[in-house]
Nucleic acid binder design. Sequence first.
DNA 1: AGGATCATGAGGACAGCA
DNA 2: TGCTGTCCTCATGATCCT
Length: 603
Amino acid sequence: MAGWTSDSGDSDKFECDSDGEAGPSSAPAMRNFDAPGPSTLGSNGWINGEVPPTSLIERYVVMGFPKEMVTKSIKEIGHGDADALLELLLTYKALDDDDAVGNNHSTSGCILPVVENDDDLDFENWDGDDDAGGRESSSDDSGYEDFMREMSERDEKINSLVNMFFSEDEANRAIIRCGADVDIFVLVDSIGASQVAEDCHSRNLSDNQVTDRCFNSFGGRKKAILMEESRKKRKRYRGGGQGNRPSLDGSDEESTPLPNPMVGFNLPGYRGPSVTRMLSKLDTGPPFFYYENVARAPKGEWAKISRNLFDIQPEFVDSLHLCAAARKRGYIHNLPIENRSPLLPLPPKTIFEAFPHYKKWWPSWDTRTHLNCLQTCVASAKLTERIQRALVSSSNPPPKSVQKYVMDECKKWNLVWVGKNKVAPLEPHEMELLLGFPKDHTRGVGKTQRYKSLGNSFQVDTVAYHLSVLRRMFPNGVRVLSLFTSIGGGEVALHKLGIHMRVVVSVEIGEANRRILRGWWDQTQTGALIEIPDVKSLTDERVASFVSRFGGFDLVIGGSPCNNLAGSNRHHRDGLEGKHSALFYDYVRILNFVNSAMGGRRL
DNA sequence: AGGATCATGAGGACAGCA
DNA sequence: TGCTGTCCTCATGATCCT
């Protein structure tokens, strides 16, 4: 059982380890001076000075602010203080809206995300300022020919927008806001921004409520194309609470739509729309937090999760895009999303890259290139036997009906071809490889337990990609509060990123998981590991004690139990109120208390 | 007693089609 | 617009075995 006895023992160990690892240079590990304070980051998560003004103009324009207004605001107060800039823009916007629309808007404008639209976007080399400068300079032309060209462009774009079923008035206003020289898709985004902004106003949401709820609900070239093609998609943009837009009033009636493709805010090497999000200053770290759970939770559950985590929009990612196995997960975090970098070397991205030796037995009619989600249970020997019998008694290639039966089972149970007509479940060490863990990470506990632990864990490369932004921010290491640690996916990710963990306070109920983590930690880490078995025993007082002792935490990370959310659960898929998944509220409780104890925001 | 093995769909998203 | 088919899902509970 958890208790102060084990904790105090660990506490002693911590101080001992700390001393032990600390040469003169690392001695300040217990001090806070090396952790960047709020001044290191702007409220939008950009590191100061990294975003040039031209890019800023473009970003705010796509949010729905007129270009002239943005330029004027930046001239007035500069671009160093994003909060002040936003405040000024909102004020101007409110005044402008009062004049233009006659609505009695408050200054709480709807702050919207920016969707980068450049088709040539290269995430690994992109500097975030591709063509904004070019567009900016072209708008300075003032000759007659330019004027006529602009008018012609303007008419053309209005026609295009009208053809997309926007009203002429909406099209006109967008062009006034953004200029006639911008891409048609910027105009589409701008109209969407205004619609959601109006929606937000009409629902009387506060700034913080709308900031991230509006995020990702529209925008992007791809969506614009879809909109042109489909009346159904068009509804998504035109508002009125229809379609797939996330609920803005927090009701559970609408589900949070899962993106397709499920690539999150961005992915290494993915050439598609990338997103730049803005968080309110109160929502940014430190402490940074990172929460994870299954993407395909019952309807309304992600809206609930988001509501409890500062209304931050989830980032849904299918690890399929990073490794050879699917893993559809939602992540809510307040980490910056620019300048991420993947773990190198990149993991094998297909089944054959991961397991080339299976190619020998792989039938041509099994067209899988990726495995499905790795779960906590594997197929029975009887099932693989049945499959083998079906194949042996069939011709080669087998008839379609047999192929379908075999393929259905192979997909369902993630079976691989290990011999002639012979399929088998993945071995635990193969799952470790796919999930990004070191080989034999889970070795030492029973095989069934290994499957269970691995099935419940993070996909390390995916998580590491998100956490990679911490490397530059914490060159001297991080202090981590790890909730529902499992087998330490977050810790392995940080380690593989080269981020030193000065201390990890880990909460994990499973004895086998704790043993796995401890075994890995002792082999690879020099920092302190404090283990707490039961999250319920991590009381507010105890959190306060840790915060006081370590000077705070830099990262609160964890994925709460999915048992009652996961589709595989046929018995008790009860949502967040379920027996296990209700522990999510302990994550919220503890995160809030850490925030509060560190002088930050509390819900 | 505890680990290993086995059988057990519902629910939701989405594409295709009339 | 609504119907239909297809696909996928961090699991649970009963039973067997050692």
